[in-house]
Design a protein around this nucleic acid. Sequence first.
DNA 1: CGAGCTTTTGACGGTAGTCAACTGCGGTGG
DNA 2: CCACCGCAGTTGACTACCGTCAAAAGCTCG
Lengths: 248, 248
Amino acid sequence: MTAKTPWKRDCIDCPLLHCEGLRPLDKAQLKFMQGFKQGEFQIEKGTQSLVQGSISPHVYTLLEGVLFRYRILEDGRRQIVNFVFPGDLIGLQGALDDPLLHGCEALTPATLCVFSRDRMVELFAEQPKLGYDLTWLAAKEEAALEEHLVAIGRRTAKERVVYLALFLAERAAATGLDKKGAFAISITQSQISDTLGLSLVHTDRTLQALRKLKLVNWTLNSISIPDIGAAHEFSHYEGSGSGVRPYI
Amino acid sequence: MTAKTPWKRDCIDCPLLHCEGLRPLDKAQLKFMQGFKQGEFQIEKGTQSLVQGSISPHVYTLLEGVLFRYRILEDGRRQIVNFVFPGDLIGLQGALDDPLLHGCEALTPATLCVFSRDRMVELFAEQPKLGYDLTWLAAKEEAALEEHLVAIGRRTAKERVVYLALFLAERAAATGLDKKGAFAISITQSQISDTLGLSLVHTDRTLQALRKLKLVNWTLNSISIPDIGAAHEFSHYEGSGSGVRPYI
DNA sequence: CGAGCTTTTGACGGTAGTCAACTGCGGTGG
DNA sequence: CCACCGCAGTTGACTACCGTCAAAAGCTCG
């Protein structure tokens, strides 16, 4: 949308190539992806990039920024399902021709790389390794959702918040954001509550309690975890512990 | 384990070929899978087929029966993550060499088809379509987990139970179990509560309430939903609506 | 018939939800 | 410049949904 950025940047200039948490593509793969890529587009903070219920012929890879995926019930209840970091795929969830089951909103300005859904089969045929990676990513996403399920289903409010802080810290660190237990990310309490299945008010009180306990210091602009070990122990969360991820 | 069944049945005799909800493999695929298959094994109701934390070199397809996947926290809290029906894959969740993140228990006597994890790459290389299907399955599983997340995070106890009943009914119908809003499946209240993030006692009370409301009749041996439309409306769940699934 | 599991019931307490109002902050515009 | 607005966070009072503890009732099976 903005004229400042090229409509289609070469894959050789892909920002993900230099992302430490990601395994870079090799020459052949880059070449293939170059032809596979349809373009990119940028969105601003707060905008809805995908809308629940619409039918999209595209799949996206997030190049820069952070998003979150959510679902909304007719009566307005919202559940944030997961957060999206650079290198993550969007739009693969659910089958091909069905309407999208979730919406997607930007937490920061973000840029997405666009692929055609129809041509996915080509990718599997011509670049089996990339197909494999795709499955790997889907499996990993699944594992993350399982972890969320455990958190929401079986953890107390305080544990949930600490868990979420750790989860985000882990992903943020892997994609280049700050590392040492504190990082800048802008999430409102309302978004936290919709992630963790809590009410807004109770989320606020829980955040306050955790500040007093010196476990997590969560403000609108940043999250800091003074003692990561203590946080893990408190939340009964061990961390996903996986190293490098593939992408695209 | 049991001597009665052949260690390795031919793929041409695969029971999944006749399952109405599944798209059968073609000749070439069957032939390939025949070589890919390592064997099969049976487990009895109530046995743990996979154990959380162990490292398994295998991936499985469920041929017959119903299982559920769960995670356990050190202090004993359990969260059932999803149910497994014939044609579903097990063991793909999470990356390759990591220890298993979840356990798996049989709800009925069941038989599993065994594949080697290491040879997965071959599958993608030689049968891209199957690789594609694998991703499709993973994406579908992901969509199911999202739905669970919404249920646990944003629905009331009654809505959750009705949702789960509908979800199971849908999957059961697609794999040949009874269809008309009532089917035989044996799930304890304790398992229901661990699926929905409720306590055992409260689950029981909720079930009773739903019986009185004539929304769901859930006993140890069967689930019946007198008025499916009413149930959908009550639970704000629309159903996944997807038709045939691929498998293997 | 007793063991063991699942379900059911009662009583009680607490965590978390709802309602409503107020504060603080940044931006806009008169 | 300051009033006004909108958004995010905070607080208080009250409620209720749901969890915990404990015990009893049904069932199945050896």
